[in-house]
Design a protein around this nucleic acid. Structure first.
Length: 713
RNA sequence: GCCCCUGUGGCGGAAUUGGUAGACGCGCUGGAUUCAAAAUCCAGUUCUUUCGGGAGUGUCCGUUCGAGUCGGACCAGGGGCACCA
């Protein structure tokens, strides 16, 4: 943990820190005042110290049970990049104590295309200039209105302010470059300063065009003519051949990169450096709802940790929320304590922990929920890592990366002996719903909205309602449907059946009433079918003898068991349910048969017994009720999962499609093990095939047994 | 703006490794039942057609005997962008 400065969104009217979400179009959501970027001392976890291992584990097998897209997102987020740190000397010697400007670049191969130097508005040198340049200070103030999110900074119009200095190009004799303060350069990344090569970087190009700065191409796309090729409004960022670059001419981008880095290092002009996109994890929040950061600030002893015996630091029960800002900070008594070291008057840290801290280790706590200590290593080591972790894709980066980091730290402190908290990860989709707003622009709950004519109106006031996009359900946008209401109207079984049947679990589900109604119907249909079969499972036949007429039902039963089991094992719940619909339909017809085509009691008992156990994970209430009604032993949730007999699955004939020039023209009903010769013979004697190939010669005949026949004319 | 993902009938979605596009459900249409309706049951349902066929998986191009599936370019929607959690 360490304390350092970082930027926050500051609402100057409310005098409070705002979350990025609370900044709307650059203004505070409550006050409407333009938000400023302000520097604050904050607590940080040094997650960057673990960057190398957090990255390595993504590829070395430790996270084989994670989806590739999540691993790729984390890899890009950590953002390891090799580059060059180098200096551009100032023309005319020292200015404000700087002899040169240090920059970091990942594209040193484009050094000969350098056009200007760009500095972050938060760069110390810029601040020094601003002290005596009110116009520059005004420019910096403008930049600070952008907000702190990367999105806001990247999307803002490119703006610059020219500093009254120039630098020399270390590799081009007599070449000088102008120096600009540019609003798109981040102080957190690299050195907060760049050299710009507009021909091969889009942001640099946008900036150069706006301020009429030179654009010098140095990488030639494959096949382009060096005499005529030029950059217009689109930078060329692909691979190509270096030109206009002295000793790099003719090299590929990769070769030029190694050569220039080697050259700069050998001449003492630069240094090969690895930089990370990942920043340290800022955990300070100026809010009441959170765990207090257990630190005491003493005027004499400076920063003193709260002694272990006094942990945890509890929040005061009473707090004043009538004003914006942090209630802990203005609480009359809570923060005043004696320094644990010297005993003098001191104050508590009033920042609380980011709630991501809590979600980073709860799984270790779950292993021993009643323990006095935060964790019980013996229990944690027995239960962890989590075999199967399930969460929304929105957690792909922050939560999942923080938990991975925290687990490493817990290992270092002896709480657990694992690095990776989650062996298998499944990213489920979100439940989405349309959003609604009233005439004042306030969000509305779906239950307060009714359809009228072609639009929607407020259920109580009758005022028109505007329908917004379908988005993930969230409390702030009120597009939520309460589980209680669903369970009350349709029952928990129907709600669960619908949610699982609607889409694959990794995809979003849009909540619809008609969908739940369909599930409700199915449940009734199953019960109506089971009801007349009372005590069916009680009559155990002495010998399990099946009749020939049972064949089709038994095949359906056993293939349902196989299919549903396999689908559940692979999280394909929607497909499992589709199979169950098919099986239920078939069983309904079979059970209704009478006379000598009717299935025997053992075949029916086998089918119903399997069906109830297969639906039990989806509709447990219906399953238990049905199981009891049919006289099954004990509870269905304790009954063994049904097994299937592979031998009962085979069919006598399969349907083999015949294509002519890749288009389906006929079908062949044929034994599954038919030889190629037999298939060919039957295919060519098929009437539809004969019609299509009449008068033509067959150029090629492709037969994939069990799959397809393709006749190429 | 950057990173990741998705795109198939009126709708949600099926389609092991490239091999019958549209399983299953919703909706809709017709029929049965009913005095009538609801519920239920049965049948049909990608579009088009001169009934031979023809077109079709966001768009365009490519690889292949064969592409929803593989490659390239683009378009649209969603998730994330470090203080929503």
């Amino acid at each position: 943990m360490e304390r350092k400065k970082s930027f926050v969104n500051w609402d100057p009217v409310d005098g409070t820190v705002l979350a990025n979400e609370q900044v709307i179009d650059g203004k505070g959501w409550r006050s409407g005042a333009p938000v400023e970027r302000r520097e604050l001392s904050q607590w940080f976890f040094k997650i960057t110290d673990e960057a190398e291992d957090l990255l390595a584990a993504l590829d070395d097998g430790r996270l084989d049970g994670w989806p590739d897209n999540v691993k790729l997102m984390q890899k890009n987020w950590i953002g390891k990049s090799k580059g060059l740190k180098m200096s551009f000397p100032l023309v005319g010697g020292d200015v404000h104590g700087y002899a040169a400007i240090d920059i970091f670049t990942t594209r040193p191969d484009t050094l000969f295309g350098a056009s200007f130097i760009g500095l972050s508005p938060d760069h110390p040198l810029v601040k020094s200039f601003a002290a005596s340049d009110p116009k520059l200070q005004k420019f910096i103030d403008e930049c600070q209105k952008i907000g702190t999110s990367e999105e806001a900074i990247e999307k803002a119009d490119k703006k610059g302010y020219r500093l009254p200095i120039e630098v020399t190009h270390p590799l081009i004799e007599g070449e000088t470059l102008s120096v600009w303060v540019a609003n798109f350069i981040l102080i957190q990344y690299g050195t907060g300063a760049i050299f710009a090569c507009p021909a091969h970087d889009q942001r640099d190009l946008d900036f150069a065009r706006k301020y009429d700065l030179p654009v010098r191409p140095v990488v030639l796309p494959k096949g382009a003519d060096p005499k005529t090729w030029d950059v217009d409004e689109e930078a060329f960022v692909g691979d190509g051949t270096l030109f206009n670059s002295k000793f790099l001419d003719g090299l590929s981008v990769d070769d030029a990169l190694s050569k220039i880095i080697e050259y700069m290092e050998s001449k003492g002009l630069g240094e090969s450096t690895t930089t990370w996109r990942l920043r340290d994890w800022g955990i300070s929040r100026q809010r009441y709802w959170g765990c207090p950061i257990p630190i005491i600030h003493c005027p004499k002893c400076d920063i003193v940790p709260v002694p272990t015996n006094d942990l945890p630091v509890k929040l005061p029960d009473e707090a004043d929320f009538s004003k914006p800002g942090n209630p802990l900070d203005r609480h009359p008594t809570w923060k005043h304590v004696k320094c644990p070291k010297c005993g003098e008057d001191a104050t508590r840290e009033t920042d609380t922990f980011d709630t991501f801290v809590d979600s980073s280790w709860y799984f270790a706590r779950f292993a021993a929920p009643s323990d006095q200590a935060p964790t019980n290593p013996e229990e944690a080591n027995y239960w962890l890592p989590v075999d199967q972790y399930i969460g929304g894709i929105e957690h792909a980066i922050l939560h999942l990366l923080y938990a991975r980091y925290f687990t490493r730290m817990m290992k270092a402190c002896g709480h657990v002996n694992i690095e990776e908290p989650f062996r298998n990860l499944f990213t489920q989709g979100m439940v989405t719903h349309a959003t609604f707003k009233d005439t004042q622009g306030q969000w509305l709950f779906p239950e307060d909205v009714i359809a009228k004519d072609d639009g929607f109106v407020h259920a109580k006031t009758g005022e028109p309602v505007t329908v917004g996009p379908i988005e993930k359900m969230s409390k702030s946008k009120k597009n939520v449907v309460s589980p209680e209401m669903i369970a009350d109207s349709y029952g928990a079984d129907a709600a669960r059946w619908f949610m699982l049947s609607d889409s694959p679990p990794e995809r979003d589900v849009e909540w619809t009433d008609s969908g739940v109604e369909g599930a409700w119907r199915l449940i009734n249909r199953v019960w109506d079918m089971i009801e007349p079969q009372a005590e069916l499972l009680r009559e155990k036949a002495d010998t399990q003898t099946f009749a020939d007429t049972d064949q089709d039902l038994r095949r359906a039963t056993h293939s349902a068991i196989k299919g549903v089991s396999d689908d559940i094992a692979h999280f394909r719940f929607n497909k499992a349910i589709a199979r169950l619909y098919e099986f239920i339909g078939f069983l309904r017809k079979s059970a209704a048969l009478s006379g000598n085509t009717a299935p025997t009691q053992p075949a029916l008992a086998e089918a119903f017994s399997a069906l109830i156990r297969l639906i039990a994970p989806f509709t447990p209430h219906l399953a238990e009720e049905s199981w009891a009604h049919l006289g099954g032993d004990g509870l269905v949730c304790n009954a063994p999962w049904p097994s299937y007999d592979e031998g009962l699955l085979a069919t006598e004939t399969i349907i083999l499609p015949i294509q002519i020039n890749g288009k389906k023209r006929a079908e062949l009903h044929i034994a599954p093990d038919a030889s190629k010769d037999m298939i060919e013979q039957q295919a060519l004697s098929n009437e539809a095939v004969k019609r299509h190939i009449a008068g033509k010669t067959i150029a090629k005949l492709i037969i994939v047994p069990g799959r397809i026949v393709n006749i190429v004319l």
